[in-house]
């Protein structure tokens, strides 16, 4: 069976510097793959090339075997690649459920409908999605007054609206307390398993990575320097040198 996502020899330079240099990896359905590395290692560039925001200089990105390089982000999204951002936010002038409805409206290609009220579109479906992330009680609150952890959940519901095959999550737990981190990642893992979605995520919080990633890949200066299970990567001397350091400031206890 072809893997869900195949990245082959992906390369992109900025002003002569290779931000991403010949990176290749694969990701299967139902798998959580962590992409880690120091700041500026090329993680964001990598993300942006997979979802179509940046065009690679060379290389391929195959989704279910089909090369999607050169497609616009919108079209990549339609093919089933959802995305969440490092700094979560909502459409702040809308209620929680309207945020989800917006995504459903777009998925159904009704963005340019200008007659029937938007509130009437997909309200039940939106409520279902909110229930999945545990936010249905907040459906009619303005999204601008939500706590940050809740904004993350709404963002997840929005990302699930087009029934994605692949989710790209940029530092999904940034700015959250340890307990919220675990809750959110546990929720993500559950939804991913139920819907058979593949997840590629970047993360600096090592307890999250070790607890939830099925596999990890490590980027440094644009190159893929290690990949494999948590244990293998943790004990890799190269990764220690460029990323983990002494390990004395990393949470000692790993709990799932």
């Amino acid at each position: 069976m072809t893997p869900l996502l195949q990245v082959r020899d992906l390369t992109r330079s900025f002003g002569g510097v290779r931000a991403v240099d010949n990176v290749s990896f694969e990701l299967a359905r139902g798998e959580l793959l962590a992409l880690i590395g120091p700041n500026g290692a090329g993680k964001s560039t990598c993300f942006n090339m997979i979802n179509g925001q940046l065009r690679p200089d060379s290389g391929e990105v195959r989704l279910d075997g089909e090369n999607i390089v050169g497609r616009k982000p919108r079209d990549v999204w339609r093919l089933g690649v959802g995305r969440t951002f490092q700094i979560a936010a909502t459409f702040h002038s809308m209620t929680v459920i309207e945020n989800v409805q917006m995504a459903l409206i777009s998925h159904a290609k009704r963005t340019f409908h200008a007659w029937t009220a938007a509130a009437a579109h997909f309200r039940d479906e939106a409520r279902d999605l909110l229930a999945q992330v545990g936010m249905d009680a907040h459906a009619d609150r303005p999204s601008s007054i939500l706590a940050y952890g809740d904004v993350k959940r709404v963002e997840l519901a929005v990302a699930l609206a087009n029934k994605p095959k692949l989710l790209l999550m940029d530092e999904p737990t940034a700015g959250m307390a340890p307990r919220e981190r675990n809750d959110l990642m546990a929720l993500t893992k559950r939804l991913v398993t139920i819907n058979d979605i593949g997840v590629l995520f970047t993360e600096h919080s090592m307890d999250v990575v070790f607890a939830f990633a099925d596999r990890m890949i490590v980027l440094a200066r644009g190159k893929l320097i290690a990949q494999g299970s948590g244990e293998a990567v943790r004990d890799d001397p190269k990764v220690r040198e460029v990323y983990f350091g002494s390990g004395r400031t990393v949470a000692r206890r790993v709990s799932a």
Partner: peptide
């Protein structure tokens, strides 16, 4: 939001 080695 910074790598462990920088926290070090």
């Amino acid at each position: 939001g910074v790598a462990p080695i920088i926290v070090d």
